[in-house]
Structures are given as structure tokens and as C-alpha cells.
């Protein structure tokens, strides 16, 4: 830290750490607010806003139970997943609109792969348990994951054509550069497609109910059924982080890349954190409203949701070349 022009500026490495910390610390809060809002929309009082923190704290105090057939994979999976969720925030613009030193180690696809690794390790662990529901969940998650993959690729492709790179920072900069970039058909379509991808990946309606307890409709939720204690706490925390990471991509890369810190000044960064939390809350509110306005699709109709997503992503690419950009 050094004093410069009377304001505190932070080293780039510190800012990088701050990005990760923001995600780690804020993510349960966003989940808490979202479920609180959801309850309020439904006319319930709902859980306290800070409830996820209490849950995690409680879980960390409990003992760990491991299924008889499980091996070390079962123990390692939550840690691997959590680590993945720690890595991704390095690659994306959480607080700053300028790339941080490690921001170049992976592009959108790289971030996607890291997230996939997390999902993969959880799927493996679910197979370990020999519990039918957990195995069902992991097989479904992989199936639908494979179906949503083409949409993600086409969104990435759209970004690549618009910015000539695949780096989230550049997409954000392009979107920031002029209103034309935001309203161009390719961008709008890609954003809608990505929004649907986020709906799917965070396990929201219409794909999955995240608050239900009915195992038959579960996809991703079912994978953690056999976990308990600190490992389960890590999983819950991790899924909150994953959700927030996806929100970051949605707002800070695609829709509203404003309010990010342009300098290394502490004040700017603090402002960016506040702006970021506000934006994430808006997204949470939108998701809560969607949760309350639609019903869950039957499992075999989910493919149509995927098809619609793919259609949008595909049209985004078509629009780039034929539909006016």
C-alpha cells in the first residue's frame, strides 16, 4: 500500500485477492436476500437475510458422515469444487474494468472449463455414494449439461466475433463503449441465451426447483443429498459462489458493465463493491420473480428449454453476419 495524491491505492495483487474475497463473502448474502425476496413475493415472512451464513456456520460445527462405499473422491470433491469457484473470480471483472494480472490466464471458455471441473468432481462424488437419487441427479446434470453446452459455445462465439477475443474484460469494454453495442441484435440475443443458461446452471425454475425436497424433480440438488457437516457446508457455500459468479458474468460482462472501478484507488474499489452488490441484488430479484411467475417444466420438456436457448444463441451468431450485426 502506498499513499498517492492523498488517496489510498492498492496493489494489483491485493485487488485480485479482494475480488475473490468479495465473491466468497458476499455470495451467501445474495442467496439469503434472494430467498427472502422470494418468500416475500409469495406472501411468506421467509428466512432471515443472513440465514445462509448461520447455516454454513452450523454445518461447519457438525460431524462428517461418509457413506460406506465412498472413497477419498467423496471427501475431495467439495474441496476441489470450492477451489474451482475460487479460481474463476480471477478471470472475470468483479470489481475492476481493467484486467488484473491473472485475468489473462483464462478466457470465457477457460472459466467455463473450470466450472465444469467443479461440476464433474461433484458428479463423480455422487456416483461414489451408491445412493440412487444422488446418482440420478449426477446423470441428469451431465445430460442436461451436455445439452446446454452448445448454447454456451455459441454465446462465447458471439462474444469472440464482437470483440475478436474471448476475454470477459474485452466484452465488458465493448458493451461499455456505446449504446449501439448493447442494442445490437447479436448482443441482445446472446444475453438472453446466456440468461437462460444461468437459469439452468443455477438450478432455477423452469428447469429445477432449488428449494424443493422432492427428489424426483431434482437435478443438481440431488448430488449433495449424501453430504453432511463441513463438506456439506462447503458445497452450499460453493453453490452460492457459483451463482454469484454467473451473476457477475451476466451484469458485469453482458448487461451492465458500469460502476466498476477504473482506478486502483480504495474509494473507487469500495464504491465498486457497493455497486456490485446492488447489481447482484437486482439480478436476484429478477430471478426471484421468474421463480414465482413460471412453473417447473416436466423433465422431458426441459430439452425444449435447451432447444430454445440454443435457438437464441444460434440466432445471435446468424444475426452477427446476416441480421445486421
Amino acid at each position: 500500500m502506498k499513499v498517492n495524491d492523498g488517496a489510498m491505492t492498492l496493489a494489483l495483487a491485493t485487488i485480485q485477492a479482494l475480488q475473490i474475497l468479495t465473491i466468497v463473502i458476499v455470495s451467501p448474502f445474495i442467496s439469503g436476500v434472494t430467498s427472502h425476496l422470494e418468500a416475500r413475493i409469495q406472501g411468506r415472512r421467509g428466512p432471515r437475510i443472513l440465514q445462509p451464513y448461520y447455516d454454513i456456520k452450523k454445518l461447519f460445527r457438525k460431524e462428517t458422515l461418509v457413506p460406506n462405499d465412498a472413497s477419498w473422491v467423496f471427501m475431495a470433491a467439495p474441496i476441489v469444487a470450492f477451489t474451482c469457484y475460487l479460481i474463476v473470480p480471477m478471470l472475470i471483472p468483479v470489481l475492476t474494468n481493467y484486467p488484473l494480472p491473472l485475468g489473462y490466464i483464462g478466457d470465457i471458455l477457460g472459466g467455463g472449463f473450470v466450472l465444469s471441473l467443479a461440476s464433474f468432481s461433484l458428479a463423480l462424488a455422487a456416483l461414489e455414494t451408491n445412493s440412487p437419487f444422488a446418482q440420478l441427479g449426477s446423470s441428469r446434470a451431465k445430460t442436461f449439461g451436455a445439452l446446454i453446452e452448445p448454447s454456451i459455445l455459441f454465446v462465447a462465439f458471439t462474444v469472440a466475433v464482437i470483440t475478436t477475443t474471448d476475454l470477459p474484460y474485452f466484452e465488458a469494454a465493448a458493451a461499455r463503449s456505446s449504446i449501439s453495442q448493447i442494442v445490437r441484435p447479436a448482443h441482445v440475443l446472446a444475453v438472453i441465451a446466456f440468461f437462460l443458461v444461468v437459469l439452468n446452471d443455477t438450478g432455477r425454475i423452469p428447469v429445477e426447483t432449488h428449494s424443493g425436497t422432492l427428489e424426483f424433480g431434482m437435478i443438481e440438488e440431488a448430488r449433495s443429498l449424501e453430504y453432511s457437516g463441513p463438506l456439506f457446508g462447503l458445497l452450499k457455500w460453493g453453490s452460492a459462489m457459483k451463482q454469484l459468479i454467473l451473476y457477475v458474468l451476466l451484469v458485469n460482462v453482458f448487461t451492465a458493465p458500469w460502476g466498476l472501478a477504473g482506478t486502483q484507488k480504495l474509494s473507487a474499489l469500495l464504491l465498486a463493491i457497493v455497486a456490485f452488490i446492488a447489481k447482484a441484488l437486482v439480478v436476484g430479484l429478477v430471478f426471484a420473480m421468474i421463480d414465482n411467475s413460471f412453473s417447473k417444466l416436466r423433465l422431458f420438456k426441459i430439452t425444449e428449454f435447451m432447444a430454445a436457448t440454443f435457438l437464441l444463441a444460434f440466432l445471435a451468431v446468424v444475426a452477427l453476419f446476416l441480421g445486421g450485426g
Binding site: V161, S178, S180, Q181, R184, L320
Partner: peptide
């Protein structure tokens, strides 16, 4: 691709 104008976008 060329960026279209806001209107045509």
C-alpha cells in the same frame, strides 16, 4: 462485424 447504429440495432 461492423457495429450497427443504435437505430438499426
Amino acid at each position: 462485424a461492423l457495429v450497427p447504429s443504435t437505430f438499426s440495432g
